[in-house]
């Protein structure tokens, strides 16, 4: 196929179909992933194609969904477990921290956990409370746990394949706001996009804007409007995998532009932008011509749907942040 054929959620679905067809060790399970095809239809058609031994509905038991993936993967399978919404990852944190991320380390390499935990994340879909969290920086802080957040349909399928093939655990967070927002060419058949490789979405010379996942489309929109309004040439980087982090691409970009704005949806303090700023401080301080700005969620719980649009960084806020960077304004 050559035209824009798949949405982001269709890319997840196609990626699962492709991976399951290629490797019978791949097992997909989670709440409502079977006949229902997942609440977002990410697993649509899998049970028909691969049967109910490889596509399994589970009880409402997130702890065991993730804990059992560690066990299954040690037993030779390639589990791809779904957590219905990222807001239900907190009870699973123990299994991620104490088991999944450490099993290779604890057993001195005798065991490993080639498992993927998929979850839709982020706000903006008028969901109920606890359905909109963006806590990726907390997960990226766990040594041994890889955190992947695709921002386009093409990357989604390719990164999912890499996550499934990877010998160590991956938390795969899908920006659900953009599940059906647009289409892109997603090839049939297997391909992969490597973990640990950031993508330069747009080349520019004046400032680098760094983001990922749910914030990529509003970031691109902000950059478009800025470039329409004034004579400025913006470089945009889609981080794609928070862990492992491609520091090289980011550092090289800042060496060129001398300025950076970081955009993310989660709360500001302790958010992943802080890691990026610290990295640039360590590796590119002498190239920086202006303070780095962060455009992020506020340090508050993401509100219910009544106010969520005020919480989420939007193109005007992102554009204003980039302008402040360009102006070399200090302070916050």
């Amino acid at each position: 196929m050559t035209d824009a054929n798949r949405t982001l959620v269709e890319a997840v679905n196609d990626g699962l179909h492709t991976a399951m067809a290629a490797d019978e060790r791949v097992i997909v399970y989670g709440e409502d992933v079977g006949d229902n095809g997942g609440v977002f239809r990410a697993t649509d058609g899998l049970i028909e194609a691969f049967g109910d031994e490889r596509v399994v509905d589970t009880p409402i038991a997130e702890i065991s969904i993730v804990g059992s993936a560690v066990g299954l993967s040690m037993a030779g399978f390639r589990p791809v477990a779904e957590i219905q919404f990222s807001g239900f990852i907190p009870p699973v944190f123990n299994q991620l921290v104490s088991m999944a991320s450490r099993i290779r380390w604890r057993t001195r390499g005798e065991h490993n956990a080639p498992m993927v935990v998929r979850a839709p994340y982020g706000g903006g879909v008028r969901a109920l409370e606890h359905h909109s969290e963006s806590l990726e920086s907390a997960y990226a802080h766990v040594p041994g746990l890889q955190v992947v957040i695709p921002g386009t349909p093409y990357d989604t399928k390719g990164l999912l394949q890499s996550a499934i093939d990877d010998p160590d655990p991956v938390l795969f967070l899908e920006p659900k706001l953009h599940y059906r927002a647009g289409r892109q060419e997603v090839p049939d058949g297997q391909y992969s996009v490597p973990l640990g490789d950031a993508a330069v979405r747009r080349k520019g010379t004046d400032v680098t804007v760094i983001s990922w996942g749910s914030m990529m489309p509003p970031t691109m929109e902000a950059v478009d409007s800025l470039e329409d309004r004034r004579d400025v040439d913006v470089e945009v980087i889609d981080v794609r995998t928070l862990s492992p982090l491609d520091r090289e691409t980011i550092v090289e970009s800042i060496k060129k532009t001398g300025k950076a704005t970081v955009v993310h949806e989660g709360p500001k303090s302790g958010g992943f932008a802080a890691e990026l700023v610290a990295t640039l401080n360590e590796r590119a301080l002498m190239y920086l011509e202006a303070p780095i700005h962060r455009v992020t969620g506020f340090d508050v719980p993401i509100p219910m749907l009544g106010m969520e649009d005020y919480y989420l960084p939007n193109p005007p806020r992102i554009a204003a942040g980039i302008e402040r960077t360009l102006a070399g304004e200090g302070g916050v």
């Binding site: 659900k176 005007p316 806020r317």
Partner: peptide, 30 residues
């Protein structure tokens, strides 16, 4: 103090950027 600062910053931003309100009002809701 940091939350007070974030609130103040956001208030000033909204005052100076009526297009942000428009964006919020007109954003297609998922």
């Amino acid at each position: 103090p940091e939350l007070e600062r974030q609130l103040g910053e956001f208030e000033r931003f909204l005052e100076g950027h009526p297009e942000a309100h428009d964006y919020i009002d007109h954003r297609p809701k998922g």
